[in-house]
Simulated scan of single mutants.
Amino acid sequence: MSTFTVELPPSARLVDGPAGPVIEVHHPAATGEVHLHGAHVTSWAPEPHGEVLWLSPESAYGPGEAIRGGIPICFPWFGPGPDDWQPMHGFARRVPWTLVGVREQAAGVTVRLRLTDTDLPDDLPGREHLTGGFTADLAVTFGAELDVTLETTNSGTDDLRISAALHTYFAVSDVRQVSLDGLAGAGYLDKAGGGDHRQDGPVTFTAETDRVYRSTADVTLVDGPRRVVISKSGSPHTVVWNPWVAKSARLPDFPDAGWPQMACVEAAIVPGDEVTLGPGASHVLGQHIRVS
Rank of each mutant, 00 (worst) to 15 (best):
A29W: 11
L36F: 11
A107L: 12
F75M: 02
Y188F: 15
F142L: 11
V212L: 15
T110M: 13
D210F: 05
D117S: 15
D196C: 06
S2P: 15
S292W: 05
A207L: 05
S215K: 01
E104F: 09
S248W: 00
T209F: 01
H129L: 10
R103V: 15
H40K: 08
T110W: 13
P121W: 08
P271G: 10
H197V: 03
P48V: 08
V140L: 08
D256K: 05
R176H: 11
I162G: 05
S179Y: 08
H35T: 11
D159F: 04
S59C: 06
D117A: 14
R112S: 15
F91P: 04
D218V: 07
P252G: 12
L99D: 01
V291P: 08
F78K: 00
W54C: 01
T118E: 15
L285I: 10
C264M: 08
T31G: 11
P279E: 07
V222I: 11
T141F: 13
W44I: 05
G187Q: 13
L146Q: 10
L180P: 03
I23F: 00
R226A: 12
P243D: 03
G272A: 13
R161S: 14
P10C: 13
S235E: 09
D158E: 15
F170G: 03
S215Q: 12
V41H: 01
V95T: 13
D210C: 10
R198E: 07
L160C: 01
H89C: 06
P255S: 13
G195R: 01
P82W: 12
D137K: 02
E128Y: 08
G193N: 12
L124K: 00
V239S: 10
L124N: 00
N154W: 04
D190M: 02
E151F: 00
V245H: 11
Q105L: 13
D16R: 11
V95G: 03
G69A: 12
V140N: 09
L120K: 04
S233I: 07
A171V: 09
H288V: 08
G224V: 10
D16F: 02
